[in-house]
Amino acid sequence: MHERERIGREGIGRLGNGGDSLAALRRRVEEIQHAGAPAAGAAWGRLALGAPLDGALGGGLALGALHEVFACDKGNGAAALGFALALAAGTGRPVVWVRQDLAALEGGDLYGPGCAAFGLDPARLILVQGADAADTLAAAEEALHHAVLGLVVVEPWGMPSRLDLTATRRLALRAERSGVPALLLRSAAEPVPSAAATRWLASAAPSGAAGAPAFCLGPPAFALELARNRAGPTGRWIVEWNAHARRFAPAPRRPAAAPPAHRPAASQGPARADGPAPVVVGAFERRAG
């Protein structure tokens, strides 16, 4: 007790000695605070998702940051899963996918031939099964230490109380340190405050293959909403997944019932010259904001 008091007094004395040391301390605190800003995450580079989305993201999804994707409603778990698969396929590097057991029970196991068809090489996938949310988060944090990974997908089930702002901040900090992006995949949850750099809402979009007969299915199609973006505008897109290029492409215009023209929030960022402009925006139902 006595010892601690002495150290405390000395510490205070040192701080109070001069204004310059206090200023240095302030600077240090500022540095620490700024380390969490998206600007630092951007230093790791970006993961290109495809022309329509990259405009709003400033060239792609920031590496070394936490992102999250929610299913728009209960029936759209597969769409959220597909978005995670797309990110995993896009990195082209080993991916650790941490799933809580319940997620596999409710949403199905990841299936090798299906992943391969989607463009994600199953040989580069390490599947980790967490018995509960605590295990899942701990395993994800461990995986985020390893800079060789291209992505860590964290898939807890439901709304575990453990997954609070602090837990997401921990994931974000780990991601920032190693430069590995983390994706929080929440197919059965409502959005809650988190430390994620971007928040996506995914739902399925009807097949819109322009030339194909009306009864044919097209490539995987998504209605994506970038509901939150710390570093830029938000937006909505209807996109198709190109498994060969491992990129999203704007969905071709459907022959019937063209959606009303709508100015996307992303239009302030210039569209890439080589890709098609991100103009096709469909109205779709969404429950949670």
Partner: peptide, 8 residues
């Protein structure tokens, strides 16, 4: 379309 689903 995908010949096989990624979630089974």
């Amino acid at each position: 379309p995908l010949p096989r689903p990624p979630a089974l």
